[in-house]
């Protein structure tokens, strides 16, 4: 505990830096993480409405039925939105403040589910809604079963 005072302050305040470790069980969603390690994007599919969702869920959030079917979402998708983060933001991996050069994109996959990712094209004026993107993966040995196992999404010619 230390007082937060470079100079004498009128009111005393205390800063409490803490690092708290958690272990979250992915449960039924583990298959998604295991798929990423093999370079595949998997989603669960509702037997009633046919929606594919990422994150995958054991039950359809709309129809409350079990989703036993897993669907490979393919390697390509359409751009939904793209923008750069123009201010220093914490890297969730390191918790260091850093600048971000790469645009953040939302991608609607061939299989119908959507996910977030980075884009290889740094010039946002070249990014258009609906353009085709393809997943570029980290080398297999570097994958951890996380969303950023996909290094970035690369625009492809049609």
């Amino acid at each position: 505990m230390s007082t937060d005072q470079k100079q004498e302050q009128e009111f005393i305040q205390f800063r409490y830096p803490r690092q708290v470790p958690y272990q979250h069980s992915l449960g039924y969603q583990s298959k998604f993480a295991n798929g990423l390690k093999q370079g595949r994007i998997l989603a669960t599919k509702c037997p009633v409405c046919g929606r594919c969702t990422i994150p995958p869920r054991i039950v359809c959030p709309f129809h409350h039925v079990k989703q036993t079917e897993w669907v490979d979402q393919g390697q390509r998708g359409r751009l939904v939105s793209a923008f750069k983060i123009n201010f220093p933001m914490f890297d969730p991996r390191t918790r260091e403040l850093q600048s971000w050069e790469t645009p953040l994109v939302a991608v609607e996959l061939e299989g119908g589910a959507s996910m977030d990712g980075w884009c290889s094209e740094l010039d946002t004026s070249k990014l258009k809604t609906g353009m085709l993107l393809e997943a570029v993966w980290r080398p297999e040995e570097e994958r951890q079963g996380r969303g950023d196992d996909i290094l970035h999404w690369k625009p492809v010619e049609e």
């Binding site: 958690y22 979250h24 933001m89 969730p92 953040l104 977030d116 996380r146």
Partner: peptide
């Protein structure tokens, strides 16, 4: 506000998500 405080650590935690990026999207 800038640390992705609202994001699920696993599903979006790999990306610097926050209310700002949510509403930008």
């Amino acid at each position: 506000s800038r640390g992705g405080g609202g994001a699920n650590e696993y599903w979006m935690g790999q990306f610097p998500m926050s209310p700002i990026t949510n509403f930008a999207r």
